[in-house]
Amino acid sequence: MTATAEIVIIIFLLLGVFLTLAAAFGVIRLPDVYTRNHAASKSATLGVMLILLACFLYFYLIEGHFSSRVLLGIAFIFITAPVGGHLISRAAYNSGVKLWEKSVRDDLKNKK
């Protein structure tokens, strides 16, 4: 039982760390604000949620302590991080940051 729990926790932790690393590489390598924001807000959100889930499972299955505030943290990040990304992107667009020169579509161009 404990060995299975440990394996599940290790898988969640490694997946979460990998996704956070992928988000960091995306922020470095992608060309403009919007694609970088896309990488950072999606991948890092799921990565942090997986790490928190592993933390919750560790304390629940190994230590026997049900930590509801970690669950609340998972829900909180799931709600707020995409909204944060949306607001940063919108602020960038409204202040006139250019899209990448190879972008093919800009639906908001005629709305201004």
Binding site: R69, L72, A75, F76, I79, T80, V83, H86, L87, N94, K112
Partner: peptide, 23 residues
């Protein structure tokens, strides 16, 4: 340009109660 804050306002209304409960 008139801004549309529906997403921010709706999430704030939900998140406000979570923060107050945690406080």
């Amino acid at each position: 340009m008139k801004t549309n804050d529906v997403i921010l306002q709706t999430t704030s209304k939900v998140v406000f109660f979570m923060i107050v409960l945690f406080a």
